[in-house]
Write a protein that binds this DNA or RNA. Structure first.
Lengths: 216, 216
DNA sequence: ATGAAAATAGTACAATTATACTAGTGAGGG
DNA sequence: CCCTCACTAGTATAATTGTACTATTTTCAT
């Protein structure tokens, strides 16, 4: 019976340390290391590659999506499991295209996590209800001629910067002043963000920022 | 050396179960039970009261604040530790007034949680940096003649209902239709919520809803 | 039963956001 | 070299939100 090395990245220390405990109690997990953000995780991996990396989608410093992109690029042999609080279809789809190996909600049972670890380590992918529902919804929405939300997820650094300021409750005008930009420019960025993430008002923007881990 | 019974409520199963593991590893914790929301926690307590209840502030079904209110009213002998992701001063202050015994961010170290448990069980309160900063900020803001954000936190059920719909990206008009209310009424509720929580735009509303656990 | 708080509804106006376009410039990739 | 994309900036208008009030009815607790 092969045993596995598992690394975990999550910014909530309490959750992370508790997870280290839990992972350590799994029979076929022989080593656990933890990092508090994506950057630190990449450093860990640089020195010694794990079999499986568990990554929180909502993280500051370097968010889950970016972290995964780096891991896949530099260490394609590492299998990735994403943990997310919300079943946010948008980036799950995007990250599946990127080549992530599993998606779990944070309210799954520990034994499902255990199964997922063994599955990705040995069979390359773990297929669960969450993934199934994302795929199904994608198909039905395509058929219904809806906004195709795959273009997305390529929100640029400038756009991210502006999104952060929006979430700090600044108006377009204030953001323009702060960044020395025309209000029109800021407005355009705002609109572009909204199009990319497929929402049409402020509420959608803020929710995206939360769910993508761009804010708090 | 006295040992303690500890209950924990959190809607994220993975986090909760991992915490059960962790709590069980503490020397002076003799029994751990868990519940996935405030209601279930109250039921547990009804049958057998713990020494300490650890409550996640962000929960659906019955949020942290409401849960604590109930516990304090019906079982004042139970000590309460609040876990929160954000250092949202607003309700921490409110909940201190209610009589909650400790506040910890989810990114504290496990050993701080352990200290907090023993402290509230034996000395009734656990004083940490988070609490200190809330108190200090409260004083400085009072002096500066700012909006006093203690009035707050009494957002009503109707208001909460409307806040949820706002967060589902409905406009005032749509909410009015959905609830069979005049647009004016909805607008008034919206304004009242904003005053109570001390924000002045949609962004603030959505952030509050997230941080209070009213949405996802 | 009486007062307080919540829920309802209104008016009017200011400010901001949302939609829909066009267009120039600079950087990087094929 | 050319093409694309990000970034910049603009105009114009519609829609929604934000502010500031008044006022009636219902509900609930003392």
């Amino acid at each position: 019976m092969r045993k596995f090395k598992v690394y975990i990245a999550d910014d909530h220390t309490l959750f992370r340390k508790a997870m280290v405990n839990l992972l350590g109690s799994f029979e076929r997990v022989e080593e656990v290391k933890d990092a508090e953000n994506g950057k630190d995780l990449l450093n860990l991996i640089k020195y010694d590659t794990p079999d499986v990396a568990i990554v929180d989608l909502q993280m500051p410093v370097m968010d889950g999506a970016e972290t995964c992109e780096q891991i896949i690029k530099k260490h394609p042999e590492v299998k990735i499991i994403i943990l997310t609080m919300h079943d946010s279809h948008k980036y799950i789809l995007h990250m599946m295209e990127m080549g992530v190996h599993a998606f779990l909600l944070k309210n799954t049972e520990p034994n499902e996590l255990e199964k997922a670890i063994y599955s990705v380590a040995e069979k390359d992918f773990y297929h669960n209800d969450l993934v199934a529902s994302v795929l199904r919804k994608n198909i039905t929405e395509k058929k219904a001629g809806q906004r195709p939300h795959f273009k997305h997820a390529e929100i640029t650094d400038r756009e991210k910067e502006i999104l952060v300021l929006i979430c700090r409750e600044l108006t377009i005008r204030e953001i323009g002043q702060k960044l020395s930009l025309s209000e029109n420019t800021v407005r355009n960025h705002r609109v572009n963000i909204m199009e990319k993430i497929g929402v049409n008002n402020t509420v959608g923007l803020v929710k995206y920022a939360y769910e993508a881990g761009i804010v708090s």
